[in-house]
Design a protein around this nucleic acid. Structure first.
Length: 259
DNA sequence: ATGGTAGACGCTCTA
């Protein structure tokens, strides 16, 4: 069996508790990066996760944001938070060494709208700080995977209806430039490497009947260094996880690696 | 027709 690495924005670990456990049981993934856990660390359902046979490292906060990495093997050298702004207390990044790989789990700020004078500049500045952090992390030399909800659809082929989203913070030129900048650091889009465009879609808004209408975007990504790309053998999106009762608005994204 | 849903929290914000 290949090693499986997953990223999934669950939109509240407590609201998605049963779905997460069913997901772990069904797929038996090796490493799972979660975003939008929306819970302080004291209230994270740690017993459920360990009961399912997983270690967890967590970086949460009340109400918003929050990230966690679940793994079969224990995590080492855990790092919480994106450096570069001492005033920034939003819990959007956690990193750890797992199974010989550096795994970085990110929840990039949404940015609200391009015209927003606070949230969109925060998103762009956050992406700048991320690039600086990535340079240091890549320099450590381990195979590296940057997994998460990037809130960026890198090209028009990453939206089912690109014209509807052209003016959005998910498709705007400046965030697409930031995505290209990460590729410029030596990272590769592992999902795109294995799966042809258009898609695969990973997020459908709860509103406007977006899922039944097929109005989704590819905003959840796994970027990897070249050594990890060479070890990767396939990728997938579990679109079925968006169906049924009380789904997250995001589907889990998988990349598989030779061990 | 210019809306709509979901989650956490508290009567509103974020996505």
């Amino acid at each position: 069996m290949p090693l499986s690495l997953v990223t999934w924005n669950v939109n509240s670990i407590r609201a998605r508790h049963d779905r997460v456990l069913a997901f772990l049981d069904r797929h038996q993934p090796d490493i799972v990066c979660l975003q939008e856990t929306k819970v302080e660390d004291d209230a994270f359902p740690m017993e459920s996760i360990t009961g399912a046979g997983y270690h967890a490292v967590i970086h949460g906060q009340r109400t918003y944001n929050g990230v966690a990495i679940l793994s079969r093997e224990p995590a080492e050298n855990v790092h919480c938070g994106l450096p570069g702004d001492p005033e920034d207390e939003q819990a959007r990044l956690i990193a750890a060494d797992i199974a010989g790989m550096r795994v970085i789990d990110i929840y990039v700020p949404n940015g609200k709208s391009v015209a927003d004078e606070e949230k969109y500049p925060y998103k762009l500045a956050w992406l700048e700080r991320l690039q600086a952090f990535l340079k240091e992390e890549i320099a450590r030399g381990l195979p590296l995977a940057l997994c998460g909800d990037y809130n960026i659809a890198p090209t028009d082929e990453d939206a089912a209806y690109p014209e509807r989203w052209a003016a959005s913070v998910l498709c705007h030129e400046k965030v697409r430039t930031a995505f290209q900048g990460m590729l410029g650091l030596g990272l590769h889009d592992a999902v795109r490497h294995h799966l042809d465009a258009p898609g695969p879609l990973t997020w459908w808004d709860y509103r406007r009947l977006a899922f039944p209408k097929g109005d989704g975007l590819r905003i959840d990504h796994i970027l990897v260094t070249e050594d990890a790309l060479k070890r990767s053998v396939d990728a997938a999106v579990d679109r079925d996880e968006r169906k049924g009762k009380q789904p997250s608005d995001h589907a889990p994204v998988f990349v598989y690696f030779d061990r």
